[in-house]
Nucleic acid binder design. Structure first.
Lengths: 348, 348
DNA sequence: CTGAAAGCGCTTACAG
DNA sequence: CTGAAAGCGCTTACAG
């Protein structure tokens, strides 16, 4: 079944069928109805390739999930607590707007070429990327070719610096405020020795969270001891090693601020294995508020990142940009929220 | 940049460029090299729509995630522990084979039409569906139109009954054996009063797990009391209500077999809120082995469903079927595995 | 081994 | 308001 068949059955030309499908105004109601009836009767849907080739949009956006650090892991992004809900949310939002989502995983630097390729092959109208570290070149390229992009968790300064023309949206959360509130909370509980289990510094959120920690400590007149600055890279295993090293090293801080929940969960596990009680002997905090955070014992005090809203925003912005060819650079910072649960304790 | 440009630059015709791209054998090595050089120099990739329109595959598969019962939930599949890893795994496997994945969520019966539409619009070569309940009509339709499909968690009998021609693969796990081993394990611990928190009976795995429970009880000479048969529908909230009802009703069983981990987690939460100790006062078991299962306290004894392998299998089979136009109906049952942790206790 | 040409199924400027 | 025709960028049977 093709538009020609519909045309014949409705007694019009293919042009008219096309006009009906594309909602042209200059089709008399009567004709439109006649054509629509045939279309519905035969459940006709135009061949997308033909439409695209003739100049229509693909009505598809590409979602690119970067997971380079995990590439040696057999399970790779499988079991990744952070990305999964994000993927779901993007699909959800896009589908709700009648837009298809082509999802791609990126495990190596070379995989970045897949992004450009998807555009050159004309498979997608726009892209959303999450998990990029410093590899923004391909994005800059694609954007300069005229394709819109939403970038999640990336330095706005760098985007401004690297991307001079085109359509981009940068979507972050207010991680600095989140960390600030957390330190404020811990300081309020009487903590003065607050360690940090930092994330990957190649990552925007990794840097922001770390810097916000340093800044907030100063603000509250606290000092960050070198042996309490642990480099966890956002990875459970690395985090576990760092925490174990700290335990073996000697004195513990009274609180350990972990830069994501995955690492916090890992820290809790290691500490409990070593018979160190949480929160009695050490308070632990996380960041992100992934699902298991509320399930562990003690339930994790953390900062909620509005992943779902961020995904929604990314989709909304990208769709807006598809509809408007003028250059634009929009930066969004969605609100984080302190979630107090049971992993921190007041001290004297 | 289009194939015509490449042709001009390489001093050949478009036909030859196309032959090079499509690996035709009758192109002399020298010519091939010359063309390839230009292609690489300009990073040329053929317009996919044009290729598809000319008769090539889309190199894209559609992944359809059904989540009808959750449609009133604001978060919908967001936070769904079961599907997320599956989605990741499918994307992973497909991408590794150079295949794109178009992911669609299905929340209403009407949404099922999206499946047919994706094929009619020629966006995908094949489909994978997960989460279907009784709605197999559209799949039967699409398969009879000649498109291959992998179906996850569905009754093989029903597929055989409903789909008479076409290419289908059904991928399940050996949930019956999983339940059997679990009952065997519980019986071995001395449990004689084993309740069940059942899943959704419209679901294949929901039925299999429930029936396997009944059968295993008989085998071990145990009886299933009516007030210990709880209908949880695979949903946390419903499960919580059922468990609470049981608690208020009076005597508890010594063990409660939950038909998925989500419900088990929910049960644990409710029981602990009511100051009922696990596993001292009641043993709890789950099914699936989702991530939080190992994180809760007590860590959940459960049955691992090989989701990653199932996703992989679904992709492999669908790709095979794309390459082979002969009718086929293949049924796979991947092995489940008993995972013993801390939520069950030996009794006298 | 290779090019000219037809054809895939649409859309849309053009002419009426 | 509407149809005939050109064009989108490929692939491939055909002819040489």
């Amino acid at each position: 079944m093709k538009s020609e068949d519909i045309a014949r059955l409705a007694g019009v030309s293919r042009s008219t069928v096309s006009r009906v499908i594309n909602n042209y105004q200059n089709v008399p109601e009567e004709t439109r109805k006649r054509v629509m009836k045939v279309i519905e009767e035969y459940q006709f849907h135009p061949n997308n390739s033909a439409r695209v080739l003739a100049g229509k949009k693909t009505d598809t956006i590409g979602l690119f999930i970067v997971s380079i650090a995990e590439r040696d892991n057999i399970n790779r992004i499988y079991r990744n607590n952070y990305f999964s809900p994000f993927v779901d949310a993007v699909i959800d939002s896009a589908n709700a707007n009648g837009i298809y989502v082509l999802v791609n995983s990126i495990y190596t630097i070379k995989d970045y070429e897949k992004i450009k390729r998807a555009f050159i092959e004309r498979r997608i109208d726009a892209g959303i990327i999450v998990g990029t570290e410093k590899e923004i070149d391909v994005i800059a390229d694609v954007v300069s070719m005229g394709y819109p992009f939403s970038i999640i968790d990336y330095s706005p300064e760098e985007v401004v610096h690297r991307i001079k023309k085109g359509r981009v949206a940068v979507i972050n959360s207010t991680d600095d405020e989140g960390i600030h509130r957390m330190i404020e909370y811990l300081a309020g509980l009487g903590h003065r020795d607050i360690g940090i289990l930092s994330g990957r510094m190649n990552t925007y959120s990794g840097r922001v969270r770390y810097e916000a920690y340093q800044k907030a400590l100063k603000e509250y007149g606290l000092i960050s001891k070198k042996e309490w600055v642990l480099k966890g890279e956002f990875i459970k295993k690395t985090a576990a090693q760092e925490v174990l090293k700290m335990i073996n090293h000697g004195k513990l801080p009274t609180a350990l601020l972990c830069c994501n929940d995955d690492m916090a969960l890992s820290a809790i596990e290691v500490l409990q294995n070593e018979k160190i009680n949480i929160p009695e002997e050490i308070s632990i905090t996380g960041f992100d508020d992934i699902m298991p955070a509320s399930l562990v014992k003690p339930a994790l005090t953390t900062v909620r990142v509005p992943l779902y809203s961020m995904a929604q925003k990314a989709v909304d912005e990208v769709l807006k940009m598809i509809g408007d060819t003028s250059d634009s650079l929009n930066i969004f910072n969605l609100e984080t929220e302190l979630v107090i649960r049971d992993s921190c304790k007041k001290i004297n």
